[in-house]
C-alpha cells in the first residue's frame, strides 16, 4: 500500500505541476487514490513502520492540492466548462 501510495503521489505531483492544464483532473483523481492507499497503508503497517505510507500520503496530498488549485475552474457552476470551451 505504502509503495503504491508513493508512486501515485509522485505521478499526481508531476501531472499537477507540469501538464499545463491538460491532465490536471487526472492528477487530482490519481492523488486522491494515493491518499486512500496511504491512509490504508498507515492503518495496516506495524507500529513504527509507517514511514513509506506516510511519505506516500504526503506526496499524494501535495499532488492533489497542486492539481486542484491549478485546474479546477468552478465547482457548483454548471456551464463554466462550456463557457471556456
Amino acid at each position: 500500500m505504502g509503495v503504491a501510495a508513493l508512486v501515485l503521489g509522485i505521478v499526481s505531483i508531476v501531472l499537477g505541476a507540469f501538464s499545463a492544464g491538460a491532465l490536471g483532473w487526472i492528477g487530482g483523481i490519481v492523488g486522491i487514490v494515493g491518499i486512500i492507499l496511504g491512509a490504508l497503508g498507515r492503518k495496516s503497517a506495524e507500529v513504527g513502520k509507517t514511514g513509506l505510507a506516510t511519505a506516500g500520503l504526503v506526496c499524494s496530498i501535495i499532488g492533489t492540492v497542486l492539481s486542484i488549485i491549478l485546474y479546477i475552474a468552478c465547482i457548483g457552476c454548471a456551464g463554466a466548462g462550456i463557457a471556456l470551451s
Partner: peptide
C-alpha cells in the same frame, strides 16, 4: 482531447457531489 479536458475542468453541480 482538448474538448474533453475543457468539459472535465469546469462545471460541477453541488447536489451531485
Amino acid at each position: 482531447s482538448a474538448y474533453i479536458n475543457s468539459l472535465m475542468q469546469g462545471g460541477f453541480v453541488f447536489y451531485g457531489g
